[in-house]
Amino acid sequence: MEQKKQTDKGAEKVIEIKGLMKSFGNFHVLKGIDLDVYKGENLVVLGKSGTGKSVLIKIIVGLLTPDAGDVKVLGQLVDQITYKELLELRLKVGFSFQNSALYDSMTVRENLEFPLVRNQKNLTKAEVKHAVEEMLDAVGLLNTINQMPSELSGGQRKRIGIARTLILRPEIMLYDEPTAGLDPITCLEINNLINEVQTRFHTSSIVITHDLTCAKSVGNRVAMLLDGQFQRVGTFEEVFNTNDERVKPFYDYNFIQ
């Protein structure tokens, strides 16, 4: 596995989170977390199921609102902007869902056209067609263009989901469990795709996962979310070079298994 480049901490911050708190009733999911994401880096957020990893990125993209704290994305406080401004911000933030969330009544082509024609109204039909085919080619699935989502495999759906997100050329990518439920070979392909997206489209990303192979393969930095807070943030080695009993089992299980 190729060693990922270290994050340039002198780079511009694309996401700044300070004192973020989120509770669902009496269940405190995020207990005042701080996090910065630098331009061009892939930051992996690791943690057990139910620790609030997905909640974190849903707050970043404005699908959920925080109880307290500041979430600044590309210089804008997400919970303080208008709905119109939020829609404009979302053009710059791509979100890849855990279950791909492809529109199942549309073909692959229509899935990719959907965000494009609604957000770039000046494009001609030929330009839309070209953009869709180019993006499908980038994820290696041009041959599925006329298929329905139900005809695709799990890995293909993930790739199409990523392609649909990338078609708007976002500056930031948020991946929610990109390798969940996939076989090891497909996981490897998705990891490679995430790295390729980073270099080819110059995106900064947050990757939510509990798959350490994915974390090691795609992350410039890793942040370990435990008990509602980031307990360890650093390179993969820095995070797991510890005797912390809450972190060690995570590593042991993933790699010993």
């Binding site: 993209v61 979302r90 979100f95 869902f97 279950n99 492809l102 529109y103 199942d104 957000n119 649909r164």
Partner: peptide, 21 residues
């Protein structure tokens, strides 16, 4: 049923995040 299924499979959220109302 159609909208319900779109909600639980996050297709409505997918529209939201792709800057579509």
């Amino acid at each position: 049923a159609e909208l319900g299924s779109m909600r639980v499979t996050e297709q409505i959220d997918a529209m939201e995040v792709s800057a579509t109302n």
